[in-house]
Design a protein around this nucleic acid. Structure first.
Lengths: 334, 334
DNA sequence: CTGAAAGCGCTTACAG
DNA sequence: CTGAAAGCGCTTACAG
């Protein structure tokens, strides 16, 4: 584009660069009315727009943050990003979006580059492989907020679903509906994905609470691609579960795929409840009972935490884990 | 974070800033081996990482681009963004994601801010309300690529689905399946959303091609929230359509909601085919026949076009519209 | 009420 | 093979 700079405006208006800068930053306290008008006119005529890179260099603030998710294609991440973007937009921040794909190497590259580009802070779904790096950032008082995953030993404000409760609600609902043989199907359990670990723990605790002994044959976890076989195995044992909690949307999808293929009738042959309110829950037959995460509120909270950290420059009193309530949406699948 | 600058590295290594800069930019042609080692060591010891903002100011390139979508929550946009991000990541670019919500004012604000932040180029789903602004950018030789929408009079490379063909495939499939009374349901038709206009045109042309007269009562369009009433009206007329083409995923959702509520059996009571391959198409009962957009290829193409524009600084020969083939995925709903 | 000057952290001819 | 110097386009004390 054109290369109109502040110097050009200053010349055109017949004032100094300093004065133009004052004008742009709305420091009008001592500015003559005439001066103001002259500058306004010059800006208009030249079509001047300030170079924010130059400002950023001087002010050490870029008004942009980085958001590192596992994969933007996951609906939860998309919703969180949308909420973050809305919040940032109101505060005149922009967001750089990065997909780490649960790969610590990729995550590290992004963190380093974002830092080099001087973004004012980072919101991350951490992979778990860069605890040390994050700790370095924190020690340097760099603003970081985590989402969905807790890294032990990394003291960062973290926004989480109350996963334990989500499982409790799910199991309780199934019990209430008269089921006793309740299973859970889960993705692989790497220990860094806190939400998964917590949901499984919550499932076990909920069973206990209801006086149902935990049966290891009723808990299946594995890569999405292997799940079909494992589900088959689980459901064809001597005394299979009558009801299943799907740990997340992608597991639910696999169960539904299996159910369709085997022509199982839901909930008669198999009752279902899923954590994550999938888009098609209400139009499925039967409509699917789900437990929704308040993704937008969670994203907004993360943005709020980060921006307040950025503005206050302090690390005080916000090293907590913020828990959000899961919402049961009762439909027809159990 | 720490405030280690190139000057610190230079001092520590006992060389000048220039030399450090040469080192960082891998201009090793004339650099002594010893010097190299000294600098490497200094960087390591100090944990130096260059300030890219400073570099950007000097080089007039930020290695970041802006992506303005209508709404990241639309699945197509999410997929396009993911593809763009992947492509950019390979080329060491970052993306700033913006939601314009089909609001020209919001779009303008984003464009202005992105420009001010000196992003190297913009990929947009344009709202249609800022043709003039875009033309200014283009005249200033600023790299812009459009996605999904054509603005007449704005000469920019544009990535599009062959929407006409998508409708043709849909109608032809329905005809082949023995349906003659074929309707289409669509979102509102503001003239700027090219894809919608083209799909409707395509629908009409396809009917003609198959010798079926166009019946205005079989074409319904309106706000998503009003669609249920309109669908009801359409399907309860004397001789209602036996089959329907859903213009996009959101329309399809409304039709399915209606069908479930009215307990219509698909395809017996109503055959369906949807443009956009929705996530639940394969697990729905019956599985839904859809026409998929190659969203990832389209996003990749947009990124490729933009980056090559950025690198070549020329506007030559790429002012075309790039059309992508829709893919029929035949399932059970028609 | 306004301007001259220094500085943010780099890069880049140019000189030697 | 390396360094001094100017400059990218802003902001910010400070002087007047």
């Amino acid at each position: 584009m054109k290369a109109i700079t502040m110097a050009d405006v200053a010349e055109q208006a017949g004032v100094s660069k300093s004065t133009v800068s004052q004008f742009l930053n709305e420091r009008f306290d001592y500015m003559g009315k005439e001066t103001k008008v002259k500058i306004e006119k010059a800006i208009e005529e030249l079509g001047y727009s300030p170079n924010i890179v130059a400002r950023s260099l001087k002010q050490k603030s870029t008004m942009t943050i980085g958001v590192i998710v596992a994969n933007i294609l996951h609906v939860f991440s998309t919703q969180v990003i949308r909420a973050i973007e809305d919040y940032c937009n109101e505060s005149n921040f922009h967001i750089i979006v990065c997909n780490a794909d649960d790969d610590p190497t990729k995550e590290k590259r992004y963190i380093d580059m974002l830092r080099a580009k001087q973004v004012d802070g980072i919101i991350a779904f951490p992979t778990g492989g860069n605890a040390e790096l994050y700790n370095k950032l924190i020690k340097a008082n760099y603003p970081v907020v985590f989402m969905d995953r807790i890294l032990t030993g990394v003291p960062v404000p973290t926004v989480m679903l109350d996963n334990n409760k989500a499982s409790l609600i799910a199991v309780s609902q199934l019990v209430k509906d008269g089921y006793q043989r309740i299973g859970m199907i889960a993705p692989p359990l790497s220990s860094c994905v806190t939400s998964r670990v917590e949901r499984i723990d919550g499932y076990k605790q909920a069973l206990q609470k209801h006086g149902i002994p935990f049966n290891p044959d009723y808990l299946v976890s594995g890569e999405i691609t292997d799940l079909e076989v494992k589900i088959h195995h689980m459901l064809t044992q001597a005394e299979p579960p009558e009801a299943i909690v799907a740990l997340n949307d992608r597991v639910l999808f696999e169960i539904l795929t299996y159910a369709k293929k085997q022509q199982l009738t839901i909930p008669k042959d198999l009752a279902l409840i899923g954590i994550d309110d999938v888009s098609y829950a209400s139009i499925y037959s039967p409509a699917l009972t789900t437990i929704a995460q308040p993704a937008f509120q969670m994203g907004e909270k993360a943005a709020e935490l980060l921006l307040s950290r950025i503005r206050n420059k302090s690390n005080e009193g916000i090293l907590d884990v913020y828990r959000f309530e899961p919402n049961l949406i009762k439909r027809e699948s159990c």
